[in-house]
């Protein structure tokens, strides 16, 4: 163990802030032991305290929100995902409209008579529908003229 003389010298330099980290470690070690001369006893709390103080820990979780880096990255990923989705939808629709599968299946499923009658029914429907629209056209003309009267009055 260190001699008392040595420690006294070290303490003197310690108080003048001339000791090195290693020498300060020696002092600390000395004052952590049990028997210390009475005249040095008053230094004990100091070095004990420094040791205890160093054991204190930051016990909380380190709070990390996703950093700017990640959110930046995520933003571009979402843009890319939407683009891929749109491209996918576009290419999926192409074959539906261009292929003749639908007509082929229609002819397979129905007899020519059935199709013919359906066409007739549709033709009748459209004829009557056109009549209706003509009627509406008259109605529009009627409204125009009434509006004229209303405005003139």
């Amino acid at each position: 163990m260190e001699s008392v003389k040595n420690i006294e010298k070290l303490l003197e330099r310690y108080l003048e802030a001339e000791t090195t980290v290693a020498e300060e470690a020696r002092l600390q070690e000395y004052f952590l032991q049990e028997d210390i001369p009475a005249h040095l006893e008053s230094y004990r709390p100091m070095f004990q305290y420094f040791k205890v103080a160093k054991q204190e820990r930051y016990t909380k979780e380190v709070p990390l929100k996703p950093g700017r880096n990640t959110s930046y990255y995520l933003r571009w990923v979402s843009v890319a995902a939407v683009a891929v989705l749109l491209v996918g939808v576009y290419f999926n629709q192409q074959p539906l409209t261009s292929s003749t599968d639908q007509f082929a299946s229609l002819e397979e499923e129905y007899t020519p008579e059935e199709i013919e009658s359906a066409q007739m029914a549709l033709a009748m429907f459209s004829k009557n529908f056109n009549k209706g629209t003509e009627g509406v056209a008259y109605l529009k003309e009627f409204e125009k003229t009434t509006n004229k009267f209303l405005v003139n009055e």
């Binding site: 310690y14 108080l15 003048e16 802030a17 001339e18 008053s42 230094y43 709390p45 100091m46």
Partner: peptide
Amino acid sequence: IRVALSRARKAVREEL
């Protein structure tokens, strides 16, 4: 730093 440290150490010692 040395000056401040020396003062701090001496002050603590005085109190102790």
